[in-house]
């Protein structure tokens, strides 16, 4: 397995380089360094000299990919691409175009994102599995039928509706929790209740339906028929046999999203004023802050690769039949 993991990590390097190149290319096709300078300098009294000074100070006065006027290796290294990309691999994100330390900002902002994402994931998982087991247990009854109808309805409703509806009902009408905001430490709890609740509610439809499908698939297998034939109660069959085997695809599906929890949810964090990473990238795109955009895309790619590797490893842990081989 170690060799497998090392090989996957090595594969990741050209992938990350490719992601870097594509991000860089896409960003600068749409925005030139002149455009970035004007965005940062504002709208009034912006002179060509000010634009040039800004570009020089931020290193955007160099060629993008290839410096024909330089000598030797400088043709490649004395470029915007090299300056901005190489140190990413050392996780040195540098400073944003507005002068902030990106690494520090990411470190500060990821905790609020995790404070919402982790409870939403764990509690949501518990609730979805419970509902799915219930619905699968009562398969082909009116409970199953109504359960599916409710799940499909909930899936069809936009997440934004849950957010606005939740704020309206629970904060505005019932006055139970703050509409938006955040605090540190234990004081954050009252601010997280509503976004977590909304996150769980909006995921129930999708999660329950998906897990129900897995449970039903398992319940039609031979070992379950054997267990029934042996006279085991349905409850025992559900919890001891079906659930255990169904957890394999469930857990591997969860593991792959674990690293992405750091990236936060844009809409949730915007409406609830949670200072997380969700809005960090979008704000940077709007402000044309390339330093942040490339850092977040790189970080997202690394986390995604880690997620895939963890998924592969988790397969071997939950299913002894699976081996990671060359």
């Amino acid at each position: 397995m170690i060799a497998y993991i090392i090989r996957r990590v090595l594969y990741a390097i050209p992938i990350l380089i490719g992601v870097n190149v594509i991000t860089f290319f896409l960003f600068f096709v749409v925005n030139s360094p002149d455009d970035m300078a004007r965005m940062h300098l504002g709208h009034k009294y912006v002179t060509p000299a000010a634009v040039q000074n800004w570009k020089e100070e931020h290193g955007y006065n160099k060629p993008l990919f290839w410096n024909a006027g330089a000598q030797g290796m400088d043709k490649f290294t004395d470029t915007i691409f090299f300056d901005n990309s190489v140190r990413l691999f050392a996780f040195d994100f540098g400073q944003s175009d507005s002068g902030r330390d990106i690494g520090y900002d990411i470190h500060q902002r990821m905790w609020p994102s995790l404070a919402i994402a982790i409870p939403t994931l764990l509690i949501g998982l518990l609730i979805n599995i419970t509902f799915a087991l219930l619905v699968a247990f009562f398969r082909a009854t009116y409970i199953d039928v109504w359960g599916v109808i409710i799940c499909v309805t909930m899936m069809s409703i936009s997440g934004l509706f849950y957010i606005i509806g939740g704020q309206f009902l629970i904060s505005k009408l019932l006055h139970l929790v703050p509409i938006s905001g955040y605090d540190t430490g234990l004081n954050a709890a009252k601010f997280l209740v509503l976004p977590v609740l909304v996150g769980i509610l909006s995921g129930i439809g999708n999660g329950t339906r998906w897990y129900r499908t897995i449970f039903l698939e398992e319940s039609n297998k031979d070992y379950v028929r054997t267990a029934r034939a042996k006279g085991l109660s349905e409850r025992l069959i559900q919890y001891r046999h079906i659930l255990r085997n169904a957890l394999i695809p469930i857990l591997t599906g969860v593991v792959v999203v674990l690293p992405m929890l750091f990236m936060g949810s844009l809409i949730t964090e915007s409406f609830f004023s949670i200072p997380g990473l969700g809005s960090y990238t979008i704000d940077a795109i709007n402000r044309q802050d390339f330093a942040i955009v490339r850092s977040m895309v790189f970080l997202g790619s690394v986390l995604y690769i880690i997620g895939l590797i963890l998924t592969d490893i988790s397969y071997t842990l939950v299913d002894p039949r699976v081996r990671l081989e060359s």
């Binding site: 704020q167 309206f168 509409i179 938006s180 915007s270 409406f271």
Partner: peptide
């Protein structure tokens, strides 16, 4: 910070 107008208004 209130990015959205609805929570700010409420």
């Amino acid at each position: 910070l209130e990015k959205e107008s609805i929570p700010a208004w409420n």
